[in-house]
């Protein structure tokens, strides 16, 4: 259909009813709009458990790979501690993201609602990504620390003496 231009240069090219695909997209958009505030909160809630649980998993893993009665060196101990601290810091970041926030808004002002919603989403997005970044670095460091322990020397025992080549 050939539509005339409005006085400010707006020209309509095509007009048609919504297709089933359009309707589905529209519903998906509404769902995203409504649930986007909850998504960040649920992510932080889940990751708090994952990050704190990672500390226990890492300690258990170190216990498996570290030879019995092995005394940690300063370097080995520092690696392990830093990995654990990173997990705890990540959990702290997720807690910040999960914390309830206070804002004032009026239901009569859609702008207020939009501003409050955008602020909450931005807050959770920021803390979610900071926490996730720390968690990933912690995982990498924990894996490195665990692999390093595989090659750690066990204290001398009778069996080891038998395996040494004769002088």
């Amino acid at each position: 259909m050939d539509n005339p231009k409005d006085d400010k240069g707006t020209q309509v090219v095509d007009v048609q009813p919504l297709t089933p695909h359009d309707r589905a997209l529209y519903e998906a958009g509404k769902t995203m709009l409504v649930e986007s505030v909850e998504t960040g909160r649920k992510f932080c809630e889940t990751m708090i458990g994952v990050a704190t649980g990672a500390v226990a998993v890492f300690v258990a893993l170190l216990g498996i790979v570290t030879p019995k009665d092995h005394v940690l060196t300063v370097v080995e101990g520092t690696r392990g501690i830093i990995a654990g601290v990173l997990f705890l810091l990540a959990a702290l970041c997720f807690v910040f993201g999960y914390l309830p926030r206070k804002s004032k808004l009026s239901l009569d002002l859609p702008g207020d609602i939009e501003k409050a919603r955008a602020s909450i989403i931005a807050w959770r997005h920021t803390w979610g990504w900071v926490g996730f970044g720390l968690f990933v670095v912690g995982v990498a460091l924990a894996a490195y620390a665990a692999f390093c322990m595989i090659g750690a020397q066990a204290p001398e025992s009778g069996t080891d003496m038998l395996l040494r080549p004769p002088i």
């Binding site: 240069g9 707006t10 020209q11 309509v12 090219v13 095509d14 007009v15 048609q16 009813p17 919504l18 359009d22 529209y26």
Partner: peptide
């Protein structure tokens, strides 16, 4: 520039899509 937006028909209370151009 061409844009596609959903518009609400005030008579039928339903939505439709329109493609329009802006300078």
């Amino acid at each position: 520039r061409t844009f596609v937006r959903f518009f609400a028909c005030p008579v039928k209370g339903q939505d439709y899509r329109a493609t329009f151009r802006l300078l």
